[in-house]
Amino acid sequence: MPEEAAAVHVSVIGNPDDSVVITIRGDLDLDSATVLGTTLDQVLDRPSPRIVVDLSGVAFCDSTGLSSFVLGHNRARAAGGWLRLAAPGEWLLGLLATVGLTPRLAIYPSVADALATDRDL
C-alpha cells in the first residue's frame, strides 16, 4: 500500500493592528509547501505586510518550506514590512540554525513574543 502524504493545514488570522498570523499544522515538504506559498502570496500583497508564521505544529520541513520562509521574508522587507517565525520546535529550530537562517530570519519563542516586539531584523 502506498504511503499517504501527511496533510498540511494552514490558517490565517488577521489582527486589529493589521498584522497577520499564519498557523501551520503538519509537514512542510514538496507536496504541501505550495499551500504555504499561496497563503504567503495572498498576505504579502498588503502594503507593509506584518506576518507571524506559527510553526508550533510543524513536525517536518524540507528545503521547499525553508525557501517559502526566505522568499516571504524578502518580499515583506521589500514592501516595508516583516515576516517573523514563531514557536518552532527543537528539531525545526536546529534545522534553521544548521542551514544558516537563524541570523537572517526573525525567530521568536511564541506568537505573542513575535507580535509584541518592535524589533525588526
Rank of each mutant, 00 (worst) to 15 (best):
L66H: 09
Q42T: 10
E90C: 03
G26K: 13
A87H: 13
Y108S: 03
V8Y: 09
A6W: 12
D29N: 14
W82T: 08
L55W: 03
P103Q: 05
V70C: 01
L105W: 09
G80T: 13
S48G: 00
G65S: 05
W91M: 07
R84L: 05
L115S: 09
D45L: 12
A114S: 07
C61I: 14
D113N: 12
I107K: 13
A86T: 12
D118E: 07
A5F: 13
T98A: 05
A87M: 04
W91H: 13
V43Q: 07
A6P: 11
V8S: 12
Q42S: 10
T23D: 00
A76E: 06
S11V: 05
T117Y: 05
P49T: 06
I24V: 13
G72L: 04
L96Y: 05
G89E: 03
L101N: 04
V21K: 02
L93W: 07
L40A: 03
D17V: 08
A5L: 11
R77S: 05
A59Y: 09
V35E: 14
G89S: 09
V58E: 10
E3Y: 14
I24Y: 03
Q42F: 00
V52F: 01
P109H: 08
A59W: 09
E90V: 09
G81C: 12
P109S: 07
E4N: 13
V111R: 10
A112Q: 14
G26F: 06
A114M: 12
P16S: 10
D29L: 07
S67T: 12
Q42M: 04
N15V: 01
L71Y: 07
D18F: 11
I13S: 14
D27T: 05
L121T: 01
P109T: 04
T98K: 15
A106L: 04
G37L: 02
V8H: 09
L121S: 00
L96G: 02
S110C: 01
V10F: 06
